[in-house]
Amino acid sequence: MATFPILLLTTALGGVALSAANDGARTRAALKMSARSGLGLLPGLLAVLAGVGLTMAAVPPAGVATLFQAHGAVGFFLLAGLGALLTIPGPVAYPLAGSLHRMGAGLPALASFITTLTMVGALTAPMEIKAFGRRFTLLRQSLSLVLALLVGALMGGLL
């Protein structure tokens, strides 16, 4: 996973060099804009990450696992709901889902868990609202939640 950030940084620096070779003033303006939006993003990012960190500390994976040995509809909605609250990147989400499965959580519930975990995030909503507005965020997150539940239910029928 560590190659991607390096690749990204190389691309960015290469882009800056290419841009500066063509037009120094335009490059300076572009970088100034990057710095400004970065500083604008920073307070929300710091707070959101602290919220996610605290939630993950308060609800450790092992605790989640015992909690979600509940089968049927209860386990299904509990998992989807927890996924909708948090936003966890894939490399953390899949091992977590894997251990939940070993501990007895059903595959349909895990399908909606993974989908809400990556697509819906109540804790990251403030950042999304800042980028696209409240209406857009609420709509996208509710539709994604419905999609996740639908995917889980369909997988229950198909698996």
Partner: peptide, 8 residues
């Protein structure tokens, strides 16, 4: 890196 690329 993403922010730099967005600026460019």
């Amino acid at each position: 890196s993403v922010l730099i690329l967005i600026g460019l």
